[in-house]
Amino acid sequence: MDEPLGAPSAIPLFFVSRLAREQVKVVQSGEGADELFGGYWIYHDQFEFGKYFRVPRPLRAAAGAVAEKLPPFHGRRFAMRGSGGPEKSYQRASMNYMWDEIPNVLRDYDGPCKPWEWCKPHFDEAAKQDIDIITQTQYVDMVSYMPFDICLKADKMSMSQSLELRVPFLDKKVLDVALQLPTACRVDDEHAKYALRVAASKLGFQKKVANMPKQPFITPLTVWLQTDLYYDRIKEAFTSEAAHEFFNVDYLVQMLDDH
């Protein structure tokens, strides 16, 4: 990787690239389809938050502040994430912790933790264009998650096998089409990548293929962490000198043991 990247799907991508290189020198890949055409669950999530944002912000902020002080309950994260603007609701399910849990993990933590601040400038820039929350979120993904995670790992894992990987969804002409689509053609209550799925149906793909539910490129981390091989390696890292410098080591080990 040449640099740290918290994207476990780089691992299967590495092996898929190795397998492909046994047969071909060039492949096409689907990077960009979700960001351009509205495929991620976070867009559906923002669709729901868009309704909640009709509640006056002071009321939402108060509800979030109360939720933050209460023990876990169904809807707690929604109230906390909905207490601010779209940059706060953008916090993904892939977050390992909600911000109020950080003191348990970090040693000598003096807060406050505001993980949404990194993406707020992007949302502010998108808001100037007078676009809805879903389109704002797609824009933020296009300028952050896509180039610094999605495309990065695809590029590096394919290059590691001397495999040329091309990304047709990121062709400028495709982007121009995506930018003209109304939001309802991308995301609504029932659909993600709606226009793209309709196009696939009309191009002759079987309906079950065109309407196939989105599936992540799964890396079985939860299973690996329950084996002695990886448990021992992770525990060694969690109890290292560096870990003691930055983290509450007992808390880390307890999470690992509980898993």
Rank of each mutant, 00 (worst) to 15 (best):
P115E: 06
C119D: 04
C119M: 14
K120H: 10
K120Q: 15
P121L: 01
H122M: 13
F123R: 02
D124T: 05
D124K: 10
E125H: 04
K128G: 00
I131P: 00
I133P: 00
T137M: 04
Q138N: 04
Q138L: 13
Y139M: 02
Y139T: 00
V140D: 00
M142V: 07
M142H: 09
V143D: 01
V143T: 00
Y145N: 03
M146I: 13
P147T: 03
I150S: 04
I150W: 07
K153F: 13
A154W: 11
D155G: 01
D155Q: 01
K156H: 13
K156N: 09
S160P: 01
Q161N: 12
Q161A: 15
Q161L: 08
S162V: 02
S162E: 00
S162F: 07
L163R: 03
L163I: 06
V167T: 05
V167S: 00
L170T: 01
D171W: 15
K173T: 10
K173G: 09
V174R: 07
L181Q: 03
L181G: 03
L181P: 02
A184W: 10
V187D: 03
V187Y: 15
D188R: 06
D189S: 12
E190V: 12
E190N: 12
E190W: 13
K193Q: 06
A195V: 07
L196A: 04
L196G: 00
V198S: 04
A199Q: 06
A199I: 12
A199W: 08
K202N: 11
G204C: 10
G204A: 10
F205C: 14
K208D: 12
V209I: 15
V209P: 05
A210Y: 13
A210D: 05
N211R: 08
N211A: 12
P213D: 06
K214C: 07
Q215N: 09
P216I: 08
I218M: 10
P220F: 14
L221V: 10
L221T: 03
L221I: 11
T222M: 15
T222Y: 12
V223D: 13
T227H: 12
T227S: 15
D232T: 14
R233G: 06
R233V: 11
I234E: 03
K235L: 11
A237Q: 12
F238Y: 14
F238V: 04
T239K: 09
T239Q: 14
A242L: 15
A243K: 07
E245D: 06
F247Q: 04
V249T: 14
V249A: 08
V249R: 08
Y251W: 15
Y251C: 04
